[in-house]
């Protein structure tokens, strides 16, 4: 359900940026700490995209592993599970540096122009 709501926003963003053009791919970055299930998001995306200019587009989801910088010793650790701990000193005083991403990175679209327009553009 969480994924359905997120998919709705992704489609809105893609459609707005496409501005009438047909979207073929949507590149999305999702941090591990976002608790998003990729398969559920893909499924929701296809569903929500129906009837929009994003219909049929492929959602390319890149997952970003969580990482944090220790505020005590400065070490940057990759974070794989809770509790989130510094791998050097074991403290939990971390500033999250990666893993909370949730954004549309880019779109791939089909530009449809007839030849007259192409010539006019030049």
């Amino acid at each position: 359900m969480h994924e359905l709501a997120i998919a709705g926003h992704v489609v809105d963003i893609a459609a707005r940026h496409a501005d009438g053009r047909t979207v073929t791919k949507v590149f999305l970055k999702v941090g591990h700490l976002r608790q998003v299930v990729p398969s559920a998001l893909s499924f929701s995306f296809d569903l929500v995209a129906q009837g929009t200019t994003v219909e049929g587009a492929e959602m390319v989801l890149e997952e970003v592993p969580a990482a944090g910088r220790c505020q005590d010793c400065g070490t940057e650790s990759v974070l794989k599970s809770f509790p989130l701990l510094c791998e050097a000193c074991g403290e939990s005083n971390l500033q999250i540096t990666r893993g909370e991403e949730l954004y549309v990175e880019s779109l791939e679209m089909e530009e449809q122009q007839n030849n007259e327009e192409l010539i006019a553009d030049r």
Binding site: H9, H17, E105, E108, M109, E110
Partner: peptide, 19 residues
Amino acid sequence: MHRTAVKKVVLEGVLDAND
């Protein structure tokens, strides 16, 4: 008719509108 694939950088947070 002429078709080309174009890429557009978006960098928009999925929840920006809500935020």
